[in-house]
Simulated scan of single mutants.
Amino acid sequence: MIDFKNGLIPTIVQDSKTDKVLMLGYMNQDAYKKSIDEKKVTFYSRSKKRLWTKGETSKNYLFIQEILIDCDQDTLLIKAKPSGPVCHQGSDTCWKETNNNKNFLFHLENIISDRIKKKQKDSYIYQLSKKGINRISQKLGEEAVELVIESKDNNKSLFLNESADLLFHYLILLKKKELEIQDVINILKNRHSES
């Protein structure tokens, strides 16, 4: 149970993918309830003296993925998916940090998404995506077979290159299925916690 007895509680917002701390705000019970109901972070603005949904003007919302309560039950950690820069000054975080994921797979996933969304005609990613799920699946299968063949030899360079091809095409398939690598990671985490 969250302890709102002092009226406002500090609320830390962290990017659910990169784990980068994005901002700090304060919530009262109404802000918390609105956040839960709308699945977007809403604070109580001490300067405006009212509820304030992050992104209500800029449209750079913070979409809630998970809410954690600290051991004293008087501070929240919200893991959110930002839809744009978080700081009112235009930076990714309120500490002027760049919100890059240190994991290149997430960066590559964003590149794949961007190429498909922008319909870049000279892009291999877009051309493959345009051919549909059957062709993407077929290509993934071809890469899997090539990886198996290379695994039987001792050429690490060829094996690693085929591994990269397989992973790359898997990310394209995930995108086509409207899923993300984080969805797969979450399943692996759940399996790990159950074992």
Results as ranks from 00 to 15, higher is better:
residue 90 G to W: 08
residue 136 I to W: 07
residue 69 I to H: 03
residue 2 I to L: 01
residue 155 N to P: 06
residue 150 E to H: 05
residue 90 G to Q: 11
residue 132 G to M: 10
residue 17 K to H: 04
residue 72 D to S: 10
residue 45 S to Q: 06
residue 108 L to N: 13
residue 146 E to C: 03
residue 132 G to Q: 11
residue 20 K to V: 12
residue 58 S to L: 02
residue 8 L to D: 08
residue 39 K to V: 08
residue 88 H to W: 06
residue 181 I to R: 02
residue 84 G to L: 04
residue 30 D to T: 11
residue 68 L to M: 09
residue 157 S to I: 15
residue 147 L to P: 05
residue 108 L to P: 07
residue 22 L to C: 03
residue 111 I to C: 11
residue 154 N to W: 04
residue 63 F to N: 13
residue 144 A to N: 13
residue 194 E to Y: 04
residue 125 I to H: 06
residue 58 S to K: 09
residue 20 K to Y: 05
residue 7 G to E: 07
residue 118 K to E: 15
residue 94 C to D: 07
residue 13 V to M: 07
residue 105 L to R: 09
residue 72 D to N: 15
residue 97 E to N: 13
residue 122 D to Y: 11
residue 134 N to R: 10
residue 17 K to S: 00
residue 30 D to H: 12
residue 127 Q to L: 14
residue 123 S to H: 11
residue 183 D to T: 09
residue 113 S to I: 05
residue 139 K to A: 12
residue 135 R to I: 15
residue 31 A to K: 05
residue 23 M to F: 00
residue 93 T to H: 08
residue 104 F to R: 08
residue 53 T to L: 03
residue 147 L to F: 15
residue 126 Y to R: 10
residue 126 Y to G: 06
residue 146 E to Y: 01
residue 100 N to V: 07
residue 86 V to L: 01
residue 22 L to D: 05
residue 134 N to Q: 14
residue 49 K to G: 11
residue 10 P to Q: 00
residue 66 E to S: 04
residue 56 E to S: 13
residue 125 I to R: 00
residue 194 E to S: 12
residue 150 E to P: 00
residue 87 C to A: 14
residue 98 T to N: 13
residue 21 V to L: 08
residue 34 K to M: 12
residue 69 I to M: 05
residue 39 K to P: 02
residue 66 E to M: 05
residue 148 V to M: 13
residue 73 Q to M: 08
residue 123 S to W: 08
residue 24 L to V: 14
residue 75 T to W: 01
residue 184 V to G: 03
residue 180 E to A: 09
residue 186 N to A: 01
residue 105 L to K: 11
residue 158 L to I: 12
residue 3 D to W: 00
residue 118 K to T: 14
residue 168 F to C: 09
residue 74 D to K: 06
residue 9 I to S: 01
residue 102 K to V: 10
residue 108 L to D: 02
residue 181 I to W: 06
residue 26 Y to V: 01
residue 53 T to A: 07
residue 48 K to N: 11
residue 126 Y to V: 07
residue 153 D to N: 15
residue 137 S to C: 11
residue 95 W to I: 03
residue 190 N to M: 12
residue 62 L to P: 02
residue 43 F to D: 06
residue 141 G to L: 13
residue 113 S to W: 03
residue 55 G to C: 11
residue 38 E to F: 06
